[in-house]
């Protein structure tokens, strides 16, 4: 019998929404300044109401994103304290299995094996996505806040920090945009096995078949647990 398995709670799905909506706005209002001579970004800039409006919108969206990230940190911290999970139960922490999965996947890609790696709750691809955003948030929010209040921060930080923040904000933004539109979009949209979209971001659940294909180890563990509690 087919049934659905919860993958993301409502809170987790909303955390994702409050991350990607500001992300899109930040890209649209930030990149026209990174590329001041580009015709394409000129169009976006005028759509945003010119640079003066864009700067205000950019800071508002940034505040929403930072608050979302702060909430996420509290959310993770609360759950760590409340549930006190073992290291094996912290599914986002990279471990030895990820290394083995990478090798298995490469063998599969190169037709050296017909067995796809059996992933647990989070594959190494998904762990990469999570930690890339985690690192990116510190770089982008940290440098962004310094650039927002450069006079204030230079009262106690050396002047070169502002210059570093300027480069970090601009270059990390490029990396984040490329990673999202190429890597993340391939994995959740353009991958022909997924196309047109993985709906888990709003449904929050995966079907039995999807679980079997994408997270067989987790499914196995869920079933074993249910068997044991019977």
């Amino acid at each position: 019998m087919s049934r659905d398995y919860t993958r993301f709670s409502l809170s987790q799905r909303l955390q994702h929404v409050f991350m990607f909506v500001p992300f899109i706005i930040l890209v649209l209002t930030g990149f026209p300044i990174k590329f001041p001579e580009s015709e394409f970004w000129s169009f976006i800039m005028s759509a945003a109401g010119g640079i003066e409006n864009a700067r205000i919108i950019h800071r508002f969206a940034a505040a929403v994103m930072i608050l979302d990230f702060a909430f996420h940190i509290l959310y993770v911290g609360y759950n760590l304290i409340k549930q006190r999970p073992s290291l094996a139960d912290m599914h986002l922490v990279p471990n030895g299995r990820d290394g083995r999965n990478i090798i298995e996947n490469l063998k599969y890609f190169l037709f050296l094996s017909d067995e796809r790696p059996r992933f647990h709750k989070f594959s190494y691809l998904e762990k990469f996505d999570y930690w890339a955003v985690f690192w990116g948030m510190f770089i982008m929010a940290g440098s962004g806040i310094i650039l927002w209040f450069p006079v204030l921060f230079s009262k106690f930080l050396p002047g070169i920090v502002i210059q570093i923040a300027y480069i970090a904000h601009s270059d990390e933004a490029m990396l984040a945009l490329l990673a999202i539109i190429i890597w993340h979009f391939y994995n959740v949209h353009f991958n022909p096995r997924i196309w047109p979209a993985n709906k888990v971001w709003y449904k929050g659940t995966l079907s039995e078949e999807e679980m079997e294909y994408e997270h067989p180890l987790e499914l196995e563990e869920i079933k074993a647990r249910e068997e044991a509690s019977k």
Binding site: L106, Y108, F109, L110, F111, L125, I164, I167, A168, D171, E172, M174, L175, L178, A179, I182, W183, Y186, N191, P192, R193
Partner: peptide, 27 residues
């Protein structure tokens, strides 16, 4: 710092592209 970011971006994207390419190739 500037070159660090250029290498980080180019390196990361090269690996991600390679992964996408191999994945698509298998399909």
């Amino acid at each position: 710092v500037e070159w660090g970011f250029i290498i980080l971006t180019a390196g990361t994207m090269a690996l991600l592209f390679a992964h996408i390419f191999l994945d698509f190739g298998r399909w």
